[in-house]
Design a protein around this nucleic acid. Sequence first.
DNA 1: TTTAGGG
DNA 2: CCCTAAA
Length: 518
Amino acid sequence: MVSHRVLEFGDDGYKLPAKARAPRSVRRRIYKKKTSEDDDKMCAFELLATVAGSLLLEGQTSGEDNCVAVQNTVKNEIPAEETLVKSLPFSQDNPDEVEGLSNLGGGDVKSDVVVSIGSNSSTEMGACGNGDPHGSRDDVNLYSRDDDDNDENFSGYVRPRVSRSVPRIGDRRIRKILASRHWRGGSRNNAVLADAKPWYCGNRNNYLRHHQRNYPIKKRKYFENVSDSNSDDYHLQAKAHKGSRTVSSMKSRNASFVSRDHHVRLRIKSFRVPELFIEIPETATVGSLKRMVMEAVTTILGDGLRVGLMVQGKKVRDDTKTLLQTGISVENTHLDSLGFSLEPTPQPLLSSYLSEQTCDDLPLSRNLLVEDSEPSPEGDSRALVPIESAVALAPQTPNRKFKRTEQQQQAQHRRIRRPFSVTEVEALVQAVEKLGTGRWRDVKVLAFEDADHRTYVDLKDKWKTLVHTARISPQQRRGEPVPQDLLDRVLKTHAYWSQHQVYQLQSEPPQSQAEALI
DNA sequence: TTTAGGG
DNA sequence: CCCTAAA
């Protein structure tokens, strides 16, 4: 008996008999977490984030509040509209003419409302306020105004502080998280942008991390499309407070190393949420809009960002350098140009799907690629999936070598829900057309190899729901509408492969199913 | 680890 | 998405 695994398909170039698979070590790479170094090559999305607010910098003295806030200057103040136009060739008048957007919206976007939360809006994310200097030497502390965080077990997370309404969450693990002391500040499900003041505070680390990387929201999201635009890199500028230069405190643990005993204290008063681009039917409820915004914000903040550091106009990429080496020191007058920025973590989403190289191995893709890329420049096709780009790959750099903290264990919660885009569905359908419905790992490799957040189980699940979606009436469907033609292909493919599964087992290798279908 | 299905 | 029995 021959398993369908060992079948080879015509001349499509994609042969994947089980025995011919790449060595385990290679195959593993697929799921290997990328290091931050790997991701260092910036993707086309440049810097999407905006950091705004005040940053206070001062030399650590003996702990008294000798802080002087310095107004930071936001540079590259490009109007939100301009940025939008640049990143998304989109106008409210004729959205369906925009390549890709029409795909995403399935052409059914006639009366949608476009909401842009631009860099001019006040979507700030709260501030880090005063705090006791409970960091250790050589650390940069981003203090929380609250003081209930043990500095040992903290990595930084969003903590809404106003709203307390309990969200309707069914997942027991979420309850657990909410019940944990680290969430007692309130609900995380309320509109952050309205009144909540989430905190981003780091400790014992020279950059912020998002401990709570995922914010599962049980209910389905109502948005059709959410994306962030390629806003420029707004840097938070700060000037050194020269008057605060002091010799290190004698109370410190290592008073003998005077030169290393200086603490640099930074206070970032607020981070602004990156520019968002939201499309929602005008018939949607306010609540759904709020949820949409919340989802977008938390998704981006969850794991789509990394912090960039700029000193004197130069990006500091080497994370191993000390502050002193970098020029961030109490004594250093160069601190007049210290800037933090939020950057999207690069992600080659569906690069196999979009890349020419793979298309050579995948004739069907080539066709699709032509169709896709014709109306719009290559850059735009990428801009169509910014959410994924900003969100997907952020590796949770395990740069905390000490004991797993309570939070870290808590962090084992459900992954965030990431609705498949039409583009992804297209890629999935295409892959399944070729490979069949029982080779999800291969599907993964073929079409989603670079989308780390899509596991083969995810793809299998998505196919399952696609089949279901295709079978129910359009009225019953939810979420971003999948083009009917795609759903038709789903049903055809599903039928085909359930039909030919038997033949395969009877060693009757079918030709490429795709050809048979077309 | 990957599949296949139920939860 | 999660969880897991099976392979």
